[in-house]
Design a protein around this nucleic acid. Structure first.
Length: 588
RNA sequence: GCGCUCGUAGCUCAACGGAUAGAGCAUUUGACUACGGAUCAAAAGGUUGGGGGUUCGAAUCCCUCCGAGCGCGCCA
């Protein structure tokens, strides 16, 4: 029966097993907020030394406080040290705090010991003014890290079989994969986007038979592809190539047609792949027999029942796997091993695959098979496989049941016909991929309040609008160095700057955790803070000093919004198209 | 049966082992004669599926039970 191939469940996205443990990943040290964090950490280290205390394992850490009453930063060093030192946590904290205040670093106003033994640091607003200068002074590079500098990452995603259009659920991998690539690149990695075309197996043959059946005006075979698109495709085939097409010709013509439509869909949503890798390449070059020979030589294979097996269970797989079938043909696993070996040979330092959770059973097979030939280790397997839970589609408050047989496939193109690509992308990037996502077509296709993309884009458009107004009023931004940023004292202003201060660590953790949705969460919150600021603080005022400072603040906000949206692959418009809320028949 | 991923407000979802678990939507109540009201403010809403354990501290880590999704082919 083959893979269930649930159309919008991304059933033909290559699947895999659970997340790799962090230890197996490329490690990224999530950075604390800029500059100030280094300063404070150094001061904290010095305070520990001055107080005659050791450093906790992993060094002292600082983090932004969750509540304003707790100051700007907090550290739990005292809590972590208490047991080793043999003193009460609050006593340890007191010693550290005293030493810290005795040699107070820049911006530090006071410390406070709170709760079980936290040390809270209260800083002067000047540290946030420096953040503003960092944001605008970074020339587009604010928030970037270097943790992955030097690594060359091959990121494979989507890779849906070229036997039909992309399903709506597959859009999740399109959006997540592209954003993850951006997130990794933001840490200095060279990232290569790759799409694997499974064009040598029997799926394409099944596709060809189905197409031929439609061409002949018949129903596709039981295990074939029943979607309406093949009826349309068959008609085009007849129009282009006439009435005497054989199956081989139909297969190649159909493959080319599907490939063109895949690329068109991806272009519509703005995703570009650097490489479209054809499985046929492997067979033409003889890569598969070659990798099989390597596996045999490794001693991890055996013959049984006329087939060649990989002794993968001994390497940590759930069971052994067939590499060469009784009829002499190779399995998907054998081909996939050859494919990933090829990727490593092309010089990438690390491979990442994004798979649908329905394929998690294959993860260990691939990883252990590669380990048998010296690629990756149990601690750091290649490829790293990111599993995403599948997407459920809902419309009219009901789950849309997928029936390939009935041909009621909802494609990504269908969605793009109805909604802006930005909405589509951000919707898929709203949540982590560990949980199954329910994609409500009614909500997504409505330009309602439930669409966070407009909320964020509106914030950006508002900033742009302020800039336009300023220009109209003849107000020009003075060079930053001449502007007195200390005019920024309003809680709304500082609140925006705090969010910007945390942006670098948001990007870093999004990369480390392979979780681009964290950027979405941040930018939604950031937009919310801006809307609050906008309400309470007028930028263009009679006070030239305040106006200048706020114009620069607005610019910093624009940079933050635009950068985060850019990483998510969503546009940051200067103007929003007005919704006509007046005669909206769908309203209320 | 075995394995993987999950279970958080009415709904959809956040939350590098940290303090009083946060947003949006929905509900209720308010707010512009100035930069775009696709906005803002406030209220209400929780035993983080249940039970144990580790820890100064658990939604987070461990064990167990319940529930959900997905896997467990000489298919790809």
């Amino acid at each position: 029966m083959g893979t269930p191939h649930v159309p919008w469940s991304c059933g033909d996205i290559r699947g895999g097993v659970g997340h790799c443990e962090p230890a197996q990943r490329l490690r990224i040290r999530a950075r604390e907020p800029p500059v100030i964090a280094d300063t404070l950490t150094d001061a904290l280290r010095a305070a520990l030394a001055a107080a005659g205390l050791p450093e906790p394992e992993g060094g002292p850490t600082l983090e932004p406080t969750a509540r304003r009453e707790h100051g700007d930063f907090q550290t739990n060093v005292a809590l972590r040290l208490a047991k080793a030192v043999g003193e009460a946590p609050r006593d340890v904290a007191a010693r550290i705090a005293a030493a810290l205040e005795a040699a107070a670093p820049a911006h530090l106003e006071r410390t406070e010991i709170a709760g079980p033994g936290f040390i809270n640091l209260f800083l002067a607003p000047s540290w946030l003014h420096e953040v503003l200068a960092e944001v605008v002074g970074a020339d587009g590079g604010y928030g970037r890290g270097t943790a992955l500098a030097g690594s060359r990452i091959n990121l494979e995603f989507v890779s849906a079989n070229p036997t039909g259009p992309l399903h709506a659920g597959g859009g999740r991998w399109v959006a997540v994969g592209d954003a993850l690539a951006n997130v990794l690149a933001a840490q200095g990695a060279e990232v290569h986007r790759e799409y694997y075309l499974n064009d040598a197996g029997n799926q394409l043959d099944t596709f060809a038979r189905s197409l031929m059946a439609r061409y002949a005006g018949e129903e596709p075979p039981e295990d074939g592809y029943h979607g309406q698109y093949l009826v349309d495709m068959a008609a085009r085939l007849r129009a282009e190539l006439g009435d005497a097409v054989d199956e081989a010709t139909a297969r190649e013509w159909g493959y080319a047609a599907v490939l063109a439509s895949l690329k068109e869909d991806l272009a519509r949503i703005g995703v570009h792949f650097d490489t479209w890798f054809s499985e046929r390449t492997l067979h033409e070059r003889g890569d598969v027999p070659e990798v099989l020979a390597q596996l045999v030589a490794s001693g991890h294979t055996y013959e049984r029942d006329g087939a060649t097996w990989l002794a993968s269970e001994a390497l940590g797989d759930q069971r052994d796997r067939v590499l060469v079938k009784g009829d002499g043909s190779t399995t998907y696993l054998a081909n996939d091993l050859a494919y990933h070996r090829d990727k490593m040979r092309r010089g990438w330092t690390h491979l990442i695959d994004i798979w649908g959770a329905d394929h998690h059973g294959q993860v260990r097979s691939l990883q252990t098979g590669l380990q048998a030939i010296g690629i990756g280790t149990p601690e750091a397997p290649e490829p790293e496989i990111i599993l995403g839970q599948l997407v459920k589609l809902e419309r009219g408050g009901e789950l849309v049941r997928i029936s390939k047989r009935a041909g009621n496939v909802i494609t990504l193109a269908d969605i793009l016909d109805e909604v802006d690509p930005d909405v589509c992308r951000l919707t898929f990037l709203l949540q982590g991929i560990d949980t199954a996502q329910t994609f409500d077509l009614d909500v997504v296709t409505s330009q309602s309040m439930e669409n966070p993309v407009y909320y964020v884009q509106y914030a950006h458009a508002r900033v742009a609008s302020i800039a336009r107004r300023a220009t109209e009023a003849g107000v020009v931004r003075a060079p930053l160095a001449t502007v007195d940023l200390s005019a920024l004292t309003h809680e709304r202003e500082l609140d925006l700057l705090r969010a910007l201060a945390e942006y670098p660590s948001v990007l870093a953790s999004a990369a480390e955790l392979r979780a681009p949705h964290r950027v979405t969460t941040w930018v939604r919150d950031f937009a919310s803070r801006f809307h609050g600021f906008y309400r309470d603080c007028r930028v263009i005022t009679d006070d030239p000093v305040l106006t200048q400072a706020r114009l620069w603040l607005a610019e910093a906000v624009r940079i933050g919004l635009a950068d985060a949206l850019g990483i998510l692959g969503v546009h940051a418009p200067d103007v929003m198209e007005r919704l006509d809320g007046d005669d909206d028949e769908a309203g209320e």
